[in-house]
Design a protein around this nucleic acid. Structure first.
Lengths: 227, 227
DNA sequence: GTCTATAAAGTGATAGAC
DNA sequence: GTCTATCACTTTATAGAC
C-alpha cells in the first residue's frame, strides 16, 4: 500500500477527471465522448483537461495508465503465488496436471472477482474497445498486464494438457479459456436475456465460478496426456 | 435463392448506403459516425439518408435488418439439419451424448466459417457494440437469430452433459461454449499479438476449428453423465 | 491552478430547385 | 430520386483575466 496523504487541489482535479473520464469514455468511446461531458461529470472546468493532460487524448492515455495500475494490484498476489508454486512443484506428470488445474482455477477466481466486483463499470468497455481497434493505449494494457496473464495461462495449459507451450494449439487453448469467462462481459446483452443476469449479482458470480471450475477439470481430465 | 433483377436507382442508393454504413458504424459506433462520412463512402449525396431512411437512426436500424437476414441465410441450413437429426435420434444415453458433440461441432463449424470468412468486417463490431449497450437494434438481432442459436446450443449442452436444459448451470455452459469461439473476435488485439493472427487467415481458421472440436469432445467425455 | 469567452471546424436535418 | 445550400447546434482547443 502506498502512503496516502492530503492531495493538492491539482491532484484532486486530476483524479476527478480520470475517474469521470473512465465512465464517459467507457460508455461512449473516444470520439463520441465530449470533453464537456467529462468535465461536468468530474465537477471541473472544461479548460482544465487541456491544462492537466494536454488535451482529450492525453486524458485518455491517463485513464489507461490508471487502469493498468489497478489491474496489476488486483492480480499481482495470485500471479506471484502461481509462479512460486510452479517453481517448487514435483516433477511427476499426473501431479503436475492436477496442479495446473488448481492454479488455473485460482487465477480465474481472482480474475472473475476483479472483473465483476472491483472493476468500475468502465474498465471492461474501455478494454474491449481497445481490443477491437488497438491504439497507443492498447500497448499500455498489453505490456502492463495482458501479456503476463496470457503467458501464465498458456504455461498452465501446456502443463495440464501435455501440449508444447510454444505451439499454436496451446496458445489457442489459452485464448479459449479466457473466452469462457470474458463472454459474460462481451456478450452482455445475451447474458442479460438468456440468463436474466441484469446486472450479474453475487449469485451469478458464484454460479459462474463454479461452472468454470468444472469445465476446467473436464478439459484436463486425469490420466490423459495429449501427445 | 431470391430472383435477382435489375435494381432501380433508388434501390442501388439504399444498398450502397447500407453497405457503407455497415463499415462506418462498425468502425466508429453510432455517435461518432458522421452521415457525411457514410454518404461519401457510399458515393451518394448526404441528403439521401434522410430521404431513404428518415435519418441517421433509421439507417442504423436498416443495417441491422440487413445483418439479421444475412446471418439467417448462413445459419439456416445447419440449424435445420440439427433439428431434424435431433428429432429422429435414438434414445440411448451414450448415443445421444455422442450426437450432441457431433451437432455442436457442426453448428460451430458453420458459425466460425460465417464469422471469419463471409461476414463483412463490420458485422462483428456492430454486434459487439449492441451487446454492450443494447438499443432497439439489439432486439432485432436477438429475436432474429441469437435467441434461436443460443437455444439450440443450450439444448445440445443438456444432451451432452446430462444437465437439466432449463437449469442455470446448463445455460452458463452454453454461454461459455460461445465464448470459446467469440473470444477470437472480441479480443482481437490480444489474438493479434499472442497468436500473430493479424488478421486471421485460412490456416488460423482451420487450427481454431480443430482445437474447438477437441475441447468439445473433452468437455462431454464418453461414459460420464453429470447428475 | 482555475476561470470565462470565443475561435474554427464539424454535426444532423431539411427546404427548395431540378 | 437527387442535388445544393444552409440553419441551428455542438465539438475541441486556447487566449487572457484572475
Amino acid at each position: 500500500m502506498a502512503i496516502t496523504r492530503p492531495l493538492s487541489r491539482g491532484d484532486q482535479t486530476r483524479e476527478a477527471l480520470i475517474s469521470a473520464a473512465l465512465g464517459v469514455f467507457g460508455r461512449s468511446g473516444f470520439d463520441a465522448a465530449s470533453t464537456r461531458a467529462i468535465a461536468d461529470a468530474a465537477g471541473v472546468n472544461q479548460a482544465l483537461i487541456g491544462y492537466h493532460f494536454g488535451g482529450k487524448h492525453g486524458l485518455y492515455l491517463g485513464v489507461f495508465e490508471h487502469i493498468v495500475g489497478q489491474m496489476q494490484q488486483h492480480m499481482a498476489p495470485v500471479a506471484e503465488e502461481v509462479v512460486s508454486r510452479l517453481a517448487d512443484a514435483p516433477a511427476g506428470q499426473p501431479a503436475r496436471r492436477e496442479l495446473a488445474v488448481q492454479l488455473l482455477q485460482s487465477i480465474f477466481d481472482a480474475f472473475n472477482d476483479m472483473s465483476f466486483e472491483h472493476a468500475p463499470e468502465g474498465w471492461v468497455r474501455l478494454i474491449l474497445r481497445e481490443q477491437q481497434d488497438p491504439t497507443e493505449a492498447f500497448q499500455l494494457l498489453y505490456d502492463g498486464i495482458i501479456s503476463r496473464m496470457i503467458g501464465l495461462v498458456t504455461q498452465l495449459v501446456a502443463m495440464g494438457s501435455g501440449l508444447e507451450q510454444s505451439s499454436e494449439a496451446c496458445r489457442i487453448r489459452a485464448m479459449m479459456i479466457f473466452g469462457q469467462v470474458l463472454v459474460f462481459h462481451t456478450a452482455r446483452g445475451t447474458v442479460s436475456r438468456h440468463l436474466g443476469w441484469d446486472p450479474p449479482g453475487p449469485d451469478s458470480l458464484r454460479a459462474l465460478k463454479q461452472q468454470f471450475r468444472l469445465v476446467i477439470e473436464s478439459q484436463f481430465p486425469p490420466g490423459v496426456v495429449v501427445p
